[in-house]
């Protein structure tokens, strides 16, 4: 397929996603960035880590998305006493028949919201993350494939770190994007109040079939990415590892830079972004608009940066402002 054909196909299929967005916007006011990034995750089959304070419509957005694409949704509240079997499922002995019956856990849904993932101990986090990676679950001697689409959205509360089990860097790297959920604007907040009073939030309809989402996800790989854009992505990733090479003086601020996995996800995310924009090709803007969400959890800040109150977003901003755009 040449670019023209891909663009035509993308224009057609991205309409499906516009419908999803429109449906979600019926319930969620603002949070356009959150909704767009969730759709990017859906298209790329990448899991998402949401970070934001309580009450910012994270759960509602995910629930609405699941309803709009007619898929099953399950919310799992992570607590310190949660066990891996509570997520994956277990075998139950039936005395009547003298056999073991498999009871599948809540992970056997299409869209999972792992609420406050850092509240559960490491073994539970590990069980979930393994299932996310392998897209299959083994209970006893039986292995079950997880149905597609399979999307895990994990939330973390940026405050109240006491009694939490922070995700290790290697586990965090498995999340495609880390999305920061911000407060709505004053106008948006006003609209939220009005909408809640109207009870309009309950009118979510399933507007898209699952196979349409899968079909759209397939075309992502056909979206054209010019070699110079690939170079640009590689440059961004490399600059996080060796800023000096790119004339940047932020080296002491970075303890560890982004892994090549970041480059892979950034290229996929840029393609998905181009798709959502109805384009059959990737532009540098697609890369830039996804760079923050792909890189922010993959850049490990040094003590010096933390002492100066710098965040990974500050450093990514510097990188993007200094690396020449093709």
């Amino acid at each position: 397929m040449d670019i023209q054909e891909v663009t035509l196909e993308v224009e057609k299929k991205s309409l499906v996603f516009r419908k999803i967005m429109a449906e979600i916007e019926k319930v969620i006011v603002g949070q356009k960035n959150l909704i767009e990034k969730i759709l990017v995750g859906l298209l790329c089959e990448g899991h998402l880590l949401l970070e934001g304070l309580p009450g910012l419509a994270k759960t509602t957005a995910v629930k609405t998305l699941a309803a709009a694409i007619k898929t099953s949704f399950q919310r799992i509240q992570f607590t310190p006493d949660l066990l891996p079997a509570d997520i994956l499922g277990t075998q139950i002995y039936r005395p009547n028949s003298g056999t073991f019956e498999i009871k599948k856990g809540p992970i056997f849904h299409n869209i999972i919201l792992a609420d406050e993932i850092n509240r559960a101990p490491a073994k539970v986090q590990s069980a979930l993350l393994e299932a996310m990676q392998e897209r299959q679950v083994t209970i006893g001697e039986s292995t079950f494939m997880l149905e597609r689409p399979f999307l895990v959205l994990a939330t973390q509360n940026p405050i109240e770190h006491e009694g939490t089990y922070p995700l290790p860097e290697a586990q965090i790297d498995r999340f495609m994007l880390k999305i920061k959920v911000d407060y709505p604007t004053a106008a948006e907040e006003k609209k939220i109040i009005e909408r809640v009073n109207d009870m309009a939030g309950e009118n979510v309809k399933g507007v898209v079939e699952v196979h349409e989402v899968e079909s759209a996800a397939k075309i992502i790989r056909s979206i054209h990415m010019e070699e110079k854009i690939t170079d640009y992505i590689v440059n961004i990733s490399r600059a996080t590892r060796n800023p000096k090479e790119f004339g940047l003086d932020i080296g002491p601020m970075i303890h560890y830079g982004a892994s090549p996995r970041a480059s892979i996800w950034l290229s996929r995310a840029a393609r998905a972004q181009a798709f959502l924009m109805g384009r059959g090709y990737v532009t540098p803007q697609d890369v830039k608009s996804m760079a923050f969400d792909v890189l922010r959890h993959r850049i490990i800040l040094s003590y010096e940066a933390e002492a100066e109150g710098k965040t990974s977003d500050d450093l990514i901003k510097v990188l993007l402002e200094r690396i020449e755009v093709p």
């Binding site: 532009t283 690396i323 755009v325």
Partner: peptide, 10 residues
């Protein structure tokens, strides 16, 4: 502004 480091949209 540093246009060389900006995309067309920026």
């Amino acid at each position: 502004f540093p246009a060389a480091e900006y995309t067309t949209e920026e």
